[in-house]
Design a protein around this nucleic acid. Structure first.
Length: 633
DNA sequence: TCGGAGTAG
DNA sequence: TTTTCTACTCCGA
């Protein structure tokens, strides 16, 4: 058996898990619900129930019909619109974050948060007065020593694992503290902070939480679930198996868990590990119903003959699995998790909207659903990817205009996604016999995002319609080329690949402007006089274009009207025209339509992000746009 | 960069 | 293992 990897107990992590979160959001809105059995419904299932409901037989993932049977007077509320849950989640996250020093506060889903409170704990451990521990004060603010709370540092606050004998003082601060004693004091102080935060959360926000205190995300999360709901658990030292007689509480604690309960070991990995330990395939059907004969604990896996990273690689490795899976899982089995609590993100890395359907088998129905989904997606982009910008000190704005715009705050994009993705889940083609064809069964296609969806002036519905028209329908056809015969149970529309647009513009230098002109020629040929067969950049003749072309439609006339030409520097004119085209394409429906018609649908939806300013620009206009950033030769 | 797999709540 | 509506990371091509 391999030795356990070295442990890093340098951090103190608190894991928060709000109790039955969706139900609590409804209860916070309407406190009468607290004493009633409450179930939150999505489609035909109960996604969560409050504790009164659970007492009366309501269960997570229960069918609604079943729920009504076991608890006829249950209050059942629809929770398919996630907006209020998302908002509540954000508010609670900000609330907790406001207590923590530093930026290491990480959200996991809507209802969990990790806090790295190491700095706060170290500071407060140092300020402990070993002669009067019973009357300690926790300082929440380094600058203002009046902010904080009093606590008794002779005992842990709340339950521990293992349970501590009643009435025994816990804190022993001696000059010759072992490292285990030092950790003990840190965890003890942290247990009081955890209690204080839970209390504040309940008093000020009305939410209870289940909390774990330990030295890593893995252990704090697992520890928390020992006492649920509305309670907390601190995992006591020693964390390392040291001298004989000093056994690791981590190992003791972890060993009893089902292998599939360990965060990071999901269904697939758990099944492989079970199969290996049992020497046969486990009953895959009823994982949640916990087939008793198939239960495999962490201990069984950890102590299996020959177990260690290499064996784990053999069991779990293979094409597609993470490179260091053996080392990673070996760490988890031994309670070692070096992953950091990540810093708060300004914007999400992805936004997706999906819906599921009983039957979806016609193009018209799909188009209709896509418009709905696209609308929701655009609304979400507007709420999650934009911010209000206080009008500024721009010198470029004339003084009289500045006055007006100063009081008005305008909206700007914090980040722009570059990629649009459409996913579907086809219904398994009705198998006559044994039904399930085993696949993860989501398929997807992605494409660059057309820039018009960033138009804040346009109505969401109009943009959604256009997005379906321009992008989503052609993506759908790639996904399902057949006219019919398919039947979908799910549609998902997502934007990914975020580029922060607030960021500074880094300067790229040494680009070959001549080359750009030549390449650009192909897409901007419309601007040139038709008689020129081999035009050099200097021969580009906007004047000729403007005077000889009929303003046949939106793009031409708008360009002609909005592109003042100097006739002195073709390069400058090129820049002006290029930037105008880009602006028009982004801000003006008609221009976009016309560009699409000219370039063809496939070509038109291709867009890219300008490396200099972050704007999303159609491919065919990118060269011109980049020129816009440059000082003319 | 894309599409799929796996994990999480 | 499917059931809901997401969001993240990793891998191979």
């Amino acid at each position: 058996m391999a030795a356990p990897p070295p442990r890093n107990d340098g951090r103190i992590i608190i894991h928060f898990d709000y109790d039955c979160f969706y139900a609590s959001v409804f209860e916070a809105e309407n406190p009468v619900l607290k004493s009633l059995p409450l179930a939150v419904q999505q489609k035909q299932i109960v996604v969560t129930a409050n504790y009164e409901g659970r007492r009366r037989g309501l269960r997570k993932l229960q069918l609604i019909s079943e729920a009504k049977k076991v608890c006829p007077d249950a209050v059942i509320l629809l929770g398919e619109d996630l907006t209020k849950f998302r908002d509540a989640s954000k508010a609670l996250y900000s609330f907790l974050k406001s207590f923590v020093w530093g930026d290491r506060v990480e959200k996991l889903g809507f209802d969990e948060v990790y806090l790295d409170v190491t700095e706060m704990i170290e500071y407060n451990v140092e300020l402990l007065n070993s002669h009067n521990l019973a009357n300690s004060f926790f300082y929440l603010n380094k600058l203002d020593p009046t902010i904080g709370f009093a606590y008794d540092a002779t005992t842990f606050c709340g339950p521990t694992y293992p349970p501590s004998p009643d009435g025994q003082p816990e804190a022993t601060i001696t000059p010759s503290s072992s490292s285990s004693d030092a950790l003990r004091v840190r965890l003890l102080v942290a247990s009081h902070l955890a209690h204080y935060l839970r209390d504040q959360l309940e008093q000020q926000k009305g939410y209870t939480a289940t909390v774990g205190v330990s030295t890593s995300k893995l252990l704090s999360k697992l520890a928390g679930s020992v006492h649920k709901p509305n309670n907390q658990t601190t995992l006591l030292p020693p964390y390392t198996a040291g001298q004989p007689g000093e056994e690791s509480n981590v190992t003791r604690f972890l060993d009893a868990h089902d292998i599939g309960k360990v965060p990071g070991i999901g269904f697939k990995l758990a099944q492989k590990l079970r199969a290996h330990v049992l020497g046969r395939e486990p009953n895959s059907e009823t994982y949640h119903a916990a087939t008793p004969g198939d239960k495999v604990t962490v201990r069984q896996v950890r102590l299996f003959p020959g177990m260690g990273p290499p064996l784990l690689d053999k069991i779990l490795g293979g094409p597609g699995s993470p490179r260091d899976i053996g080392v990673k899982v070996w760490g988890l089995l031994n309670g070692v998790d070096s992953s950091e609590v990540s810093q708060a993100r300004a914007t999400p890395t992805q936004i997706s909207i999906e819906d599921s359907y009983g039957r979806l088998d016609s193009i018209d129905a799909v188009r209709k659903e896509l418009v709905t989904l696209a609308g929701s997606l655009i609304r979400r982009m507007r709420t999650d990817l934009t911010e209000e910008e206080e009008e500024d000190t721009k010198d470029s704005i004339p003084a009289d205009e500045r006055k007006e715009s100063r009081s008005v705050s305008r909206i700007r994009w914090l980040a722009r996604p570059r990629t649009l993705r459409l996913s579907t889940r086809p219904r398994p083609p009705a198998n006559p016999d044994g039904s399930r064809s085993h696949s993860s069964n989501r398929i997807s296609r992605s494409a660059p995002i057309p820039p018009f969806i960033f138009n804040l002036g346009d109505s969401v519905d109009a943009l959604a319609e256009r997005l379906v028209q321009h992008s989503l329908m052609s993506m759908f056809r790639k996904l399902h080329p057949e006219k019919s015969g398919w039947n979908l149970r799910l549609l998902n529309v997502a934007v990914t690949n975020m580029v922060e647009s607030a960021g500074e513009q880094k300067q790229s230098s040494g680009r070959d402007i001549e080359k750009m002109f030549r390449k650009q020629e192909a897409v901007l040929r419309d601007w040139k006089s038709s008689s020129e067969s081999e035009p050099a950049p200097s021969q580009l003749d906007f004047h000729h274009y403007q005077s000889s072309h009929e303003p046949r439609s939106g793009l031409s006339s708008k360009l002609a009207a909005q592109t003042p030409l100097s006739y002195e520097s073709p390069a400058e004119d090129y820049q002006t025209a290029g930037s105008t085209l880009c602006e028009l394409a982004q801000d003006d429906d008609d221009v976009w339509e016309e560009i699409s018609d000219d370039a063809g649908e496939e070509e038109a939806i291709l867009s890219d992000t300008c490396k200099l300013c972050g704007a999303s620009i159609p491919h065919f206009a990118m060269e011109a746009h980049e020129l816009y950033h440059r000082v003319p030769d």
